[in-house]
Computed example of a mutant assay.
Amino acid sequence: MKFILLAFSILILFSCATSVKENVEDYSKITLTMDTVVVDSGDDIINLKYGIWTNTLSEDNKFLYLWNTGERTMDKINLEALRLEKKIPFEREGPNGVGDYVSWMSFLHENEVLLAGFGTLLNFDMEGKKIRDLDLGKVTFGKVNLEAGDGFDRNPIPIEKGDVIYGYLGNGINGTWTFVKANFKENRLTKIELPGINELPDYKILLEGDNINSSASPERVLKKAGDRIIISSSAYSTLYVLNLNNDSVYQANYTPKLSPKQKKGGYPEKVESVERFREVMAEIDAEINFQAPVWDEQNRKFYRFSFETLPTDIYKGPLFISAHQRPISKVYLSILDENLNLLGETLLDIKQVPNTVFVRDGQIWSYVNVKDELGFVRMSIKYE
């Protein structure tokens, strides 16, 4: 039996560049308290070989579901009790087969989850029984047919039990993505324009070399906050807000005081060698990188981390590496009000970027591997 571990507790006082006040809270000074807890896995093992890359939270943030590729199980983590509650087995083949690979997953409601495979969307109940199997290559949206290999990027937002999905739809090989609303019940696909998006420093780098074709682009993340979807990019601070009641979209623009507000842009659109691809990506990652803002329902605020990496020699490992996996030079925390106005920001005295961030009971949680056990750093913020 493994016991919950309180690994450390740190009290840090930060000074911000801004001095914006709201009510009695002074956002020019932030007191940040951190501790680390470890999940009790009992007699089982939570496989962290790939981190917690494929995961989803219950709507009330009480449970975290992790997809275990090696065992083909969905591990249900009770975040209140900090224990592994159960492992839900799935079949690889047959009428309840999930296939060889799950690229992302999304909690639909307490009895159902949506899993994405190669060009498929699969609805399962919480016992591993398949409810619906949707082959995207066979879906016809009016006169629009999807191309072979098309699918949703990693974090689309399903509503109405998965009958409607908002997200970036396209092809990861050529890097072609379009933000859409897909209504599978009515077979209707609607492209949603993001105002002013062409003026921001987006990029797509195609690698077209001998025996290899691939692409890289900024990480685009969707987060649901009440009846809104917040759309962010790792390349700039600007956010987009989609109202789920009428599908209207507007741009929320703020300017950080401690860091650049966006990447420089002007990168090559195509390279012909793996070495040049690695070089360009290292240069891009050394610039500012923005994570998605996370919503704190209790305190009615958004928290957003951003960071810069150290210039290094060309990375020799896997071709694709996330920016946060590189040596880190600076990590920032920005605090935004519920309308995404900047309240305050600070430079954090840490060299590891918070990973898989969410908020529970007013605390910021971030995944950490503690000696191959599932752990979380919990951050509590107070204002003087």
Rank of each mutant, 00 (worst) to 15 (best):
I173D: 09
I173V: 14
I173S: 07
I173F: 14
N174D: 14
N174V: 04
G175Y: 08
G175F: 07
G175R: 00
T176D: 11
T176E: 05
W177P: 03
W177C: 01
W177K: 11
W177M: 08
W177F: 12
W177N: 06
W177S: 06
W177H: 07
T178L: 04
T178C: 06
F179K: 07
F179I: 11
F179Q: 03
V180I: 14
V180L: 07
V180R: 08
K181M: 00
A182I: 06
N183M: 14
N183T: 12
N183C: 12
N183Y: 13
N183A: 13
F184I: 01
K185V: 01
K185I: 00
K185H: 08
K185M: 05
E186S: 11
E186M: 10
N187Y: 12
N187K: 08
N187A: 02
N187F: 13
R188A: 09
R188C: 06
R188E: 00
L189K: 05
T190F: 01
K191W: 11
K191T: 05
I192Q: 03
I192T: 12
I192R: 04
E193R: 00
E193G: 01
L194K: 05
L194H: 00
L194C: 10
L194I: 15
L194A: 07
P195A: 11
P195C: 12
G196E: 04
I197C: 14
I197T: 12
I197W: 13
I197Y: 15
I197N: 11
I197L: 14
N198P: 04
N198L: 14
N198G: 15
E199F: 13
E199H: 13
E199G: 02
E199V: 11
E199T: 15
E199A: 10
E199K: 11
L200C: 06
L200F: 07
L200E: 05
L200W: 06
P201D: 13
P201C: 10
P201H: 04
P201F: 09
D202M: 12
D202F: 14
D202P: 00
Y203I: 06
Y203V: 07
Y203Q: 03
K204W: 11
K204N: 00
K204A: 06
I205E: 02
I205C: 09
I205D: 09
L206C: 10
